[in-house]
Design a protein around this nucleic acid. Structure first.
Lengths: 141, 141
DNA sequence: ATGATTGCAAATGTTTTGCATTTGC
DNA sequence: GCAAATGCAAAACATTTGCAATCAT
């Protein structure tokens, strides 16, 4: 983990280790992969390992630039971050409870590339978020 | 235009007419379909038709809820709005100059529905934004 | 030792809200 | 006339920044 920081050209500091660790742990659970800066700040605070909110933001920005994590804007008002584990995926987000499922559809990926090329654009990145009702919330309704 | 407001259950007021008119005019040009609240506010101000920024936001929110317009978050920090002309489309956005092209790919639409169903979700909406370099900006680079 | 990193508090930028005033019907 | 809509200024957010103190190497 310290290696990852070093490889990214970042000095090994306590805040950086704590935050990377937290995102790595979050990636293991299937419900909390995506954390906001405030959530990370609050969790550190609960663990009695205080890191200033400004530092949380700065570290997240550095991690994102280093490619260690990915930033999403599922909701307009707050960004969330997840560990970058290499394989790209899109997101399916429950409009009611916020549950998130990750998926990949190769056909969609291809057609996106085609759409960009058709318009003379060179595709750099994309953001696809499907919004729907998850099984649980469909039942409850 | 006043009809559209009435149908949407909204009283006919000067700010609402001005803002709807502006978005309708914007929809006619191929480069300015997407306006932010601040842009709308500034344009009204230039036309000597002052509307408070709070009213701009309130009216846009009402229009969105009425289905008259669509809100996008291409960039994390500022929402933009466009007239809802019925037919759905996705967006291809130049990361350098912000130019926006609209497109539809029926295959992508289908596969999205499939992806949702495969995970037990009922698809409600989706947001697909491709980010790339437009022809002009590729040249300049 | 020294340049990078942090924490704090203050600033920023967008969007929202409270409330007195004005407007549409 | 009365409820709904507006304008203003203040509040509420998430996020960023300046700067002095602290830390990593």
């Amino acid at each position: 983990m310290a290696d990852e920081l070093k490889q990214a050209g970042l000095k090994i500091t306590t805040p950086r280790i704590l935050i990377l660790e937290m995102l790595q742990n979050a990636a293991l659970e299937s419900n909390t992969e995506h954390l906001s800066a405030e959530e990370i700040y609050a969790r550190l605070r609960v663990s009695n390992k205080d890191v200033g909110i400004a530092t949380v933001y700065r570290v997240l920005t550095q991690f994102e630039q280093a490619g260690l994590i990915i930033k999403h804007n599922f909701e307009a008002n707050q960004a969330v971050y997840e560990l970058n584990e290499g394989e790209h995926h899109d997101h399916l987000c429950c409009v009611n409870c916020g549950a998130i499922v990750e998926f990949v559809d190769q056909k969609i990926e291809e057609r996106q590339k085609k759409a960009a090329v058709d318009h003379g654009y060179k595709l750099v990145d994309h953001s696809l978020v499907l919004y729907g009702l998850c099984p649980n919330c469909q039942e409850a309704a």
